[in-house]
Design a binder for these strands. Structure first.
Length: 202
DNA sequence: CACGGGATCGTCT
DNA sequence: GACGATCCCGTGT
């Protein structure tokens, strides 16, 4: 299956790419073990004019500098001291857009993902939520900045040609960004309708 | 099921 | 020194 390429990630409409990623497959390969599944929930962040984005007003720090690279690299950071949240950088170099992948439906390497999570059963909590999804996939912030498009990359996204209908995609305000003032109402959270692995609202 | 709080540490002020 | 693009568990109903 083909990996999504730089031409996909370099598009400028971050909300559109966010929606287009639904139904694609996010996969990792560590120590020969492939794990991953179908993307069911995403969130768009559009620096520099988005107050919810870490790169608001082009703020460039050691943490955020990878967001300024060309589309198709990983932006991974530690949240609340515990969770490693996985984002995909989009747009051309110098334009800090990113998409947070919030949930996948587990498909490949399910037992390995259960081991990483310490869970004996498959439940929505296995991969439904940005922190637990990264943990299930074996992703941590050591991988921030890596390419998702090179053939040897251990993290990538595949298009398995499983298109979604317009009716299957819903959107709403993003989660956990109360500080973002007027931007917090922007409907840039996207999810697949009725999918049990979409994270719970809070 | 709803709610509240604790965990835990890198990052920026 | 404060706080966060979260999660999990305990309590009460």
């Amino acid at each position: 299956m083909p990996r999504l390429s730089t031409s996909f990630y370099e598009q400028t409409d971050v909300a559109g790419i966010s929606k287009a990623l639904l139904g694609k497959y996010l996969l990792t390969s560590f120590n020969g073990m492939i794990t991953g599944g179908r993307i069911v929930e995403t969130e768009a962040y559009r620096g520099p004019d988005d107050k919810a984005c870490h790169a608001y007003q082009n703020r460039c720090t050691r943490r955020t500098q990878v967001m300024f690279e060309t589309g198709g690299v990983a932006y991974i950071y530690l949240c609340y001291g515990i969770h490693h949240l996985f984002n995909i950088v989009t747009a051309e170099a110098g334009m800090p857009h990113a998409i947070l992948i919030r949930a996948i439906e587990p498909v490949l390497g399910i037992e390995a993902m259960q081991d990483r999570r310490g869970m004996s059963k498959v439940s929505p909590q296995l991969t439904g939520g940005p922190g637990v999804m990264s943990k299930a996939l074996g992703i941590d912030k050591a991988y921030t900045g890596i390419s998702l498009t090179e053939p040897e990359s251990p993290i990538w996204v595949e298009d398995r040609r499983e298109p979604l209908t317009k009716e299957a995609i819903l959107s709403g305000p993003r989660i956990g960004i109360d500080y973002a003032e007027e931007c917090k109402e922007w409907p840039w959270l996207f999810w697949i309708k009725d999918n049990p692995f979409v994270s719970k609202r809070r």
